[in-house]
């Protein structure tokens, strides 16, 4: 088990390899379809994303009477939908980590290598375990996209993920797809 602590940096994520189990502590910014399209279209992010991690997640959130937000469910959403945008977002805004599920494609893998970024896979469906690791909600941006689509600034502690695409051109998704295909051909 490895640890990745805030503040994050390109150097720190370059150390990580495919297959590493990592506990992340510090800040995460959620962002899914609307945010990625917005950034990709050239709009400046409302908060500096340099050396930050983006989490593909549309959290279920509750606000109490005093206006304080809590996250009640926070599993990852399918990342591949951001494939057309992700590489530019990595290049232009200096993101060093992306968390999601299902993995991403070659363009993102190339961007990870070139600019120093890692794709972390969270366990899909583990909404309760992951919500427990969120210690506070520290900011809410681009609320106009709707709450699940907005950028949520979250503080997390020991948020469990697995590196499935590293900054050295390796992708577990590619590996498993190829090896399972070879096996399938043998068994057919």
């Amino acid at each position: 088990m490895k640890k990745l602590d805030y503040p994050f940096s390109v150097e720190a994520v370059r150390e990580l390899k495919v297959g590493d189990m990592v506990l992340i502590s510090g800040k995460l910014f959620t962002g899914r379809d609307a945010v990625h399209k917005y950034l990709h279209d050239g709009n400046k992010p409302p908060v500096d994303l340099k050396n930050q991690i983006i989490y593909h997640c549309g959290p279920v959130t509750l606000q109490d009477k005093k206006g304080k937000w809590t996250v009640t469910a926070a599993g990852p959403t399918t990342s591949i939908r951001e494939e057309p945008y992700q590489w530019e977002v990595i290049r232009d805004y200096g993101i060093v980590g992306v968390i999601g599920k299902g993995g991403m494609g070659q363009k993102t893998l190339d961007a990870c290598k070139q600019y120093g970024c890692v794709y972390f896979h969270a366990v899909g469906g583990a909404a309760q375990v992951l919500a427990e690791k969120i210690k506070s909600v520290d900011g809410l941006y681009l609320k106009e996209f709707g709450l699940p689509e907005a950028i949520w600034e979250l503080s997390v502690e020991d948020f469990p993920v697995v590196v499935t695409m590293d900054s050295h051109g390796n992708s577990l998704h590619k590996e498993v797809e190829t090896s399972s295909k070879e096996m399938l051909n043998k068994l057919l």
């Binding site: 469910a73 599993g75 366990v123 899909g124 469906g125 583990a126 309760q128 375990v129 469990p160």
Partner: peptide
């Protein structure tokens, strides 16, 4: 392991297993 913990936690908290 995470899946199993999630199953326990969802039951205990009476909250959805998965947000979808």
């Amino acid at each position: 392991g995470i899946i199993k913990t999630n199953i326990d936690l969802a039951k205990y908290k009476s909250q959805p297993l998965c947000q979808d």
